[in-house]
Design a protein around this nucleic acid. Sequence first.
DNA 1: CAGGAACTTTGCGCTGGCGCAATGTCCGGC
DNA 2: GCCGGACATTGCGCCAGCGCAAAGTTCCTG
Lengths: 232, 232
Amino acid sequence: MDTKAKIAVLERAKLFGGLARDVLAASAESAQIKLIEKGSVLFQQGDEATSHYVVAWGRLRLDQTTPDGKNVVLRFMGPGDLVGSVAVWRGVPYPATPLAVEDTRLLVWSAARMMDLMQCHPPLSMKAMVMMGGRIEELQERIQQVATQQVERRIAATILKIAGQSGRKVETGVEIPFPVSRQDLAEMTGTTLHTVSRTLSAWIDDGILEGRRSSHLTICRPHRLVEIADQA
Amino acid sequence: MDTKAKIAVLERAKLFGGLARDVLAASAESAQIKLIEKGSVLFQQGDEATSHYVVAWGRLRLDQTTPDGKNVVLRFMGPGDLVGSVAVWRGVPYPATPLAVEDTRLLVWSAARMMDLMQCHPPLSMKAMVMMGGRIEELQERIQQVATQQVERRIAATILKIAGQSGRKVETGVEIPFPVSRQDLAEMTGTTLHTVSRTLSAWIDDGILEGRRSSHLTICRPHRLVEIADQA
DNA sequence: CAGGAACTTTGCGCTGGCGCAATGTCCGGC
DNA sequence: GCCGGACATTGCGCCAGCGCAAAGTTCCTG
């Protein structure tokens, strides 16, 4: 992967998209490459935070384990997404574990390198703030959901969000191109595997969804899901 | 309130604390003052985001209303806290409404002024990122709580958090020096007024808390609350 | 100090969703 | 082609917490 290819990745990255040519070039040059296989982790929750990552290809699931052993899926991350930066900036351990759900390639910067880049290119730190702001609003919306809405609506909203970020059009509808298990959905919506399974079964019977398997989940009638997610 | 007084406020503010003298002076000079009374709002959710605020004194409750009319309390904010900035940076409407629960005085900067300050003083934007990172982790923790823990633990954790931020030692324990109604606690923990009331009643009977009134809530046995919040 | 608003308490019945456990289905490896 | 493991489905019983409704407190206002 040469600098040119790195720049191409950065152009589509949330932190860098739209920035000036020279910023991209400088950033790309100082980036290392890292490859991790499906099923392995990028780092462990609790590790000292030393690096910033941007996903070039592939997909990660960000998991947080609670002290009492429960697991929460914070989000899925794909090409262009920034990983680990918040902890590096704050100087605290990584608060969650990114697990590759596909073979994944990332760009890597050390804390010091990225700090340099930001000092030299103020627009980069502005961009970072805008991005983090987006995360904050997303999280607030999710709190609002899990605090006020019932399970069925939360599951519908979660599936729609994943599909919106990563869905691919296929002939029968919109397919989610990486495996999302019932367990994953449960850990994203704050419910149990069983309740998710029952809910999806009902939707499959209604023709809203297809795919009893964690891979190949496909939405056949998106508008019906939207109705469920938005119903008062 | 002269510049000197403003600087004193900024020294204790999360965004500015620990920064160089000249940054504080420049920031203080460009700040306006705004006063709002208990019960009134600083701005409305949905308003165009034009200003950054720092609480000088007093206290605000940040409320978010959902499309279907439910309300969520995102957090309480006190002296030193930053209000509104995330929306200004992102160029989106304010996503929530800050309501004064005490008479409150704030410092105000226009979007442009704050942008200038940040361009001139990179440490300021670094600080902003660290702060936003803190918010992100806090929100992630809260999602984890509301998604995995039962109501009693969530209420205990919420009360402890408020007390940790704002509690004052009094002879019978730690008092929360501003009114927090059962409804507020319900909207912070994602439960109902009734459940909160029942839970607190039980705790009052056990001597863990005092204060059947929304003002003057006092924690008599903090360690017992910690036990409840942490129990597996 | 009387009246009313705001807030809290509490009893009761109900139900959404959990937990368990048994069973079914798909896939990959040998 | 068979076996083992991972994942999904589904029936059943139960209970934490909700919703309603009625009554009790506390505080403010005139």
